[in-house]
């Protein structure tokens, strides 16, 4: 019935990198300490719904872009929600949403990271939206594919 393949953002980026179709410059962000946020839907929920969570793949991609990164604690299957999930960015319950994000911001602060990399539009929107609330205006919130695009060697 299905006449086409579906790829995740991770599969496609890994394919491009492994086949040598894109080359990445690891020095670009060498001086910026990065960290990674696991979106609920790509990780914990995918693990439960589809039997496979994307935990290793984004970290491998991140490692192709920079050596200067560290994990949050806890992470992967036990990660903390960014607070922007389940449509909370659009329900209008903003006080609650900002409050939930506080724990994520604390996690990031403890690492000292200057850049948080995420592969999810909701997480990206939430983290960018609340960083000023937690006096983290200088935190760079980056899509995983944005980081890859930034590091492209043309």
């Amino acid at each position: 019935m299905q006449n086409f393949n579906t790829v995740t953002v991770f599969d496609l980026l890994i394919q491009y990198i492994k086949e040598g179709r894109i080359k990445l410059d690891k020095t670009k962000y060498a001086d910026v300490l990065a960290t990674y946020h696991d979106p609920c839907n790509y990780g914990r929920k995918a693990q439960k719904l589809f039997g496979y969570g994307y935990f290793e793949e984004p970290r491998w991609i991140l490692s192709q872009c920079t050596d200067n990164w560290t994990d949050l604690y806890p992470h992967s299957i036990n990660q903390l929600c960014c607070g922007g999930g389940g449509g909370t960015l659009t329900t209008g319950y903003n006080d609650e949403r900002i409050l939930y994000g506080g724990r994520k911001m604390d996690q990031i602060k403890i690492t000292g990271a200057q850049m948080i990399v995420v592969p999810c539009h909701s997480c990206h929107g939430q983290l960018n939206n609340i960083k000023t609330e937690y006096e983290m205006e200088h935190l760079e919130v980056k899509y995983l594919w944005e980081l890859v695009a930034d590091c492209l060697i043309l």
Partner: peptide, 15 residues
Amino acid sequence: SRWPWICTMCAKCEK
């Protein structure tokens, strides 16, 4: 109630 809407459905509870 507001309960189902203020939940972010992050599924830590299920975990």
